[in-house]
Structure formats: structure tokens, C-alpha cells
Computed example of a mutant assay.
Amino acid sequence: MTNALAGHPPLVRPPLARRLLAEALGGLLLAALVVGSGIAAQQLSPGQVGLQLVENAAATAAGLYAIILMVGPVSGAHLNPVVTAVDAAFGGLPWRDAAAYLPAQAAGCCGGAILANLMFDGPAVSISTHHRASGAHLLAEVVATAGLILLIFSLTRTARAERAPAAVGAYIGAAYWFTSSTSFANPAISLGRMLSDTFAGIAPASVPPFVVAQVVGGLVGYCLVRVLYPLASAGR
């Protein structure tokens, strides 16, 4: 989800405005995917939470693969402030560009949640009442985010970036099941999911501790990459 991963040489990037549009559009599609498939699962399988999670996870895994392919060649398909910050820390993205990515990602994810609500004939905004911030959930977010960062940057630093769309989709789909939090692993999607009181929603009070846990997970992932791949480089 860096430019190298998306097929661009690290020093050759599209104009920033085009990259920001790609990040916003990717975030919008990601949130619409997660929230919309959650609403569909609720409607198609009422009262069957396990089946709803299967449907939501499968749609997210497949859709994320497609979204990364769609916008990756433009922006690198970060779609996630933690990924952007770690990429900047490794020198793959200027910090000034990284700062511009973050609001585009957040706006896109919020817009995608609103779009999903409207597509299923709900109110544009319905604040979630699904409280998730237990100690177990926060630990799960650290693990999910650290694993995501380790996956992405282990691929980019070992010249296997072309495998990232499938690998990231598979990881997130699996992490729906092996983490108690269902693997948000993304501050921008956490903000967006706050705006839908549906299967995939998260209560506003749970968002700040989730974001803190995701940042901690990003730091853990960054350190693991540095330890495991100390001599690797992302083409630099």
C-alpha cells in the first residue's frame, strides 16, 4: 500500500491532488463495503450473528482486494492513517504528503458509511450504539493493526509488493474471526463506522480508545518490521 507496492517506483508519484482523490475514493468504497455488507448481512440473516459475520468478513476480504487494485496505482491505496504514518516513518512518503492523506482518508470513510446507510434506505447518519472498547477488544486492535503493518511492509521490503492486494484482503478477512474486535485496524474506518447504527457500527465513546490501540499496534508493527527486515529496503 505504498507507491512501491502499487507498482510505482518510490520517487515517481502522481500529483498529490490525484493521490488525495484516490485515497478519499478508496476510503469511501471501503466504508461502504464494510458497512453495507454488514447491513445486508443483518437483513439476509436476522438473528444469526455467526452467519452475519461470515457474510460481512467474506465481502470485506474480496472487496478490499478489488479496492487496492483499483486505487493502488494512483495513491498506493493506504486507506489507513496508520499505514500512511508508518510509510512516512520508513521514508516511503514525505511527511507533508502523509499529513494531507489523513483527512482525505477520514472524509472518505465517513462518506462511505453515509452512502451505505442511504443505499439500504436508512437515515444518512445514525450514530452507533454498539460499545466495543473492552480490554479484550483493545488488545485485539493492537494485534490486528500490528499484524497488518507487518504484512504490508514485509512484502514491500522484500520485493513482493504485487502480492499485497490478495494478502491484505485475506488477512483482514481472517482477522474478523481471530480478533474479538473484528479487526478495525484503521482509525479512519473507525470514524466512519461510528455513523451507522448497524451490524458494523461502533459507538462514539469506543472510537478514541480504539484509535489509541490502533496507533500502538502501528508502533509495534513498525518495530517488528525493523527487527525482522533490518537490511531490507523498499527500493530506496
Rank of each mutant, 00 (worst) to 15 (best):
142 V>P: 07
79 L>W: 06
37 S>N: 10
208 P>D: 04
89 A>I: 02
133 A>I: 10
36 G>R: 14
155 L>I: 03
64 L>F: 04
142 V>A: 09
146 A>I: 03
116 A>I: 12
125 V>T: 05
232 A>E: 06
24 A>P: 00
47 G>S: 07
117 N>K: 01
82 V>M: 12
129 T>D: 09
96 R>I: 07
214 Q>E: 10
1 M>D: 14
192 G>F: 06
103 P>W: 14
53 L>S: 03
85 A>N: 02
164 A>P: 10
197 D>F: 00
87 D>L: 12
147 G>F: 11
219 L>C: 14
212 V>K: 01
26 G>Q: 04
84 T>K: 13
9 P>M: 07
134 S>D: 14
51 L>S: 12
126 S>M: 01
179 T>V: 10
89 A>R: 09
225 V>D: 08
160 R>S: 15
17 A>L: 10
72 G>T: 09
133 A>H: 11
235 G>R: 05
218 G>S: 13
111 G>I: 02
163 R>Y: 15
4 A>E: 15
35 V>D: 11
137 H>Y: 15
162 E>K: 11
199 F>M: 09
2 T>L: 01
182 T>Q: 07
29 L>S: 08
186 N>P: 02
140 A>W: 00
139 L>C: 01
100 A>I: 05
199 F>G: 01
75 S>H: 08
198 T>M: 00
149 I>S: 08
147 G>W: 15
93 L>P: 02
118 L>R: 12
17 A>G: 04
113 A>T: 06
52 Q>S: 10
6 A>H: 10
15 P>D: 13
123 P>R: 01
100 A>G: 09
5 L>K: 02
16 L>Y: 11
162 E>R: 15
84 T>V: 10
194 M>K: 14
188 A>N: 00
225 V>C: 12
218 G>L: 13
179 T>H: 09
50 G>Q: 11
191 L>Y: 13
74 V>S: 13
24 A>F: 02
171 Y>D: 05
57 A>P: 07
19 R>H: 09
235 G>Q: 01
117 N>W: 00
48 Q>M: 13
134 S>K: 09
208 P>Y: 06
111 G>V: 02
32 A>L: 10
68 I>F: 04
101 Y>Q: 10
228 L>T: 07
171 Y>L: 14
3 N>Y: 00
54 V>E: 07
235 G>Y: 03
148 L>K: 05
208 P>F: 05
138 L>Y: 00
188 A>Q: 01
15 P>C: 15
139 L>M: 05
104 A>K: 06
11 L>F: 02
182 T>R: 00
16 L>A: 07
69 L>D: 00
5 L>H: 14
148 L>W: 07
63 G>C: 11
95 W>C: 00
224 L>C: 13
177 W>I: 08
15 P>S: 13
124 A>M: 07
236 R>D: 09
51 L>T: 14
73 P>R: 04
217 G>K: 11
111 G>D: 03
144 A>R: 01
175 A>T: 08
153 F>I: 06
97 D>P: 04
89 A>H: 05
145 T>N: 12
1 M>H: 10
96 R>D: 06
202 I>E: 03
106 A>F: 13
76 G>P: 08
144 A>Y: 02
121 D>H: 01
201 G>A: 09
98 A>H: 12
190 S>I: 04
35 V>L: 09
